[in-house]
């Protein structure tokens, strides 16, 4: 395995983790707002806040990790993506800022339960994946044009592209689906029957759209980037596994059985699809300008980064375990029996 592959795998793994934890976060905000809209807020708010409060900042770090890491391992991405993504990335930053600060301002600090805030928070959770996911479409090529030696983003091509919109819709449905499955499990753990039933319903509602749009994207790619499409076909078995895991999750949720396992299957489903997609993208970071080989950093830096990464994980994994043990797997905390915040 070459250093390039190690580098890109590490980043892809962190992007995957961000997708999962951020989906839970974004979706939870939306469900919270939706339940306020339908006057069911009393059912969900407690559960959602108990989960999100200690972890929202950690969620954010996964994102920072990804973009710092990609500049570190592949500095040329700064040139292509940095130059072209000024507007979409800035909008995403503003949305992230609204969410992060809302969390501290409204739920921790002043305890404002104004509906306007709740709706804004919920809506920003949907706009964020919508503003981040077009980057995946851009990486397929066809949207970044060169003006002399300077790249620019062809907004017209992007906004009229069915591929871009399919990816946006997929990200939205996936966010809601992932979040609903997780919260079903979490609410069940808390022994909260009403919240469990509500979240179970949402999980079943969003399962269909999520799988349909995911399939739709593969179809779109056939026309947009045939080279990529054919590599996806080579990996059909990985997508097949993903589909089986999906079926398993839906079955368990439907039968009200073992929500914990259902969530694990869901992670497995996204993991195999996400990695198969990543592998089929190989070797391009930006089709056709940038491969992982011509944009890779020098060897000394790559080795230094990998060593730092291993040392960092040595520190992080036990800490994350502690965090989960205290807040995710602690019965009294999950059930809301004790509120020990400062």
């Amino acid at each position: 395995m070459t250093l390039e592959i190690i580098g890109v795998s590490v980043l892809w793994l962190f992007l995957f983790l961000y997708v999962i934890v951020a989906s839970i976060d974004f979706g939870a905000g939306f469900f919270n707002a939706y339940s306020a809209f339908t006057n069911k807020q009393h059912i969900l708010t407690g559960i959602i806040q108990r989960y999100l409060s200690p972890v929202w900042e950690v969620t954010n770090v996964f994102f920072v990790f990804f973009f710092v890491g990609i500049i570190g391992f592949f500095p040329k991405t700064a040139f292509y993506y940095g130059t072209t993504l000024l507007i979409p990335a800035s909008i995403a930053l503003v949305l992230l800022a609204i969410r992060g600060s809302y969390y501290a301002f409204a739920t921790y600090g002043a305890k404002i339960n104004h509906r306007g805030y709740i709706y804004m928070y919920g809506l920003s959770g949907l706009l964020l994946p919508a503003s981040l996911s077009p980057v995946l479409a851009i990486s397929e090529g066809g949207f970044i044009q060169m003006n002399g030696s300077q790249p620019y983003l062809d907004y017209w091509a992007l906004f009229t592209s069915p591929l871009m919109w399919s990816i946006v819709v997929l990200s939205l449905t996936a966010v809601l689906y992932i979040s609903a499955v997780f919260l079903t499990w979490y609410a069940n753990k808390a022994g909260d029957v009403k919240a469990t039933d509500l979240m179970r319903k949402y999980a079943l509602v969003w399962a269909g759209p999520a799988i349909v749009t995911a399939t739709g994207i593969i179809y779109e790619l056939r026309a947009h980037n045939p080279e990529h499409f054919s590599r996806i076909l080579d990996l059909w078995w990985a997508f097949g596994i993903s589909f089986l895991l999906f079926a398993g999750t839906v079955y368990l949720i439907w039968k009200r059985k073992n929500y914990g396992l259902a969530f694990i299957l869901l992670v497995g489903q996204f993991f195999s699809a996400f990695f198969a997609y990543g592998v089929s993208h190989y070797p391009y970071l930006l089709y056709p300008y940038l491969t992982i080989y011509d944009s890779f950093t020098n060897e000394a830096m790559a080795i230094a980064l990998i060593i730092a990464f291993i040392a960092g994980l040595g520190l992080l994994l036990p800490s994350l375990y502690l965090l989960f043990r205290l807040f995710l797997f602690d019965k009294d905390y999950v059930k809301g029996k004790s509120d020990h915040h400062a």
Binding site: A308, H341, A342
Partner: peptide, 25 residues
């Protein structure tokens, strides 16, 4: 890139324990 990368790890570490500290009074 190395110190930038390490900064994220330090920040990660802080974020985890700050969450724990704040919610375990």
């Amino acid at each position: 890139a190395l110190p930038l990368f390490m900064e994220v790890f330090a920040f990660f570490f802080e974020a985890i324990f700050l969450g724990i500290y704040l919610y375990t009074w």
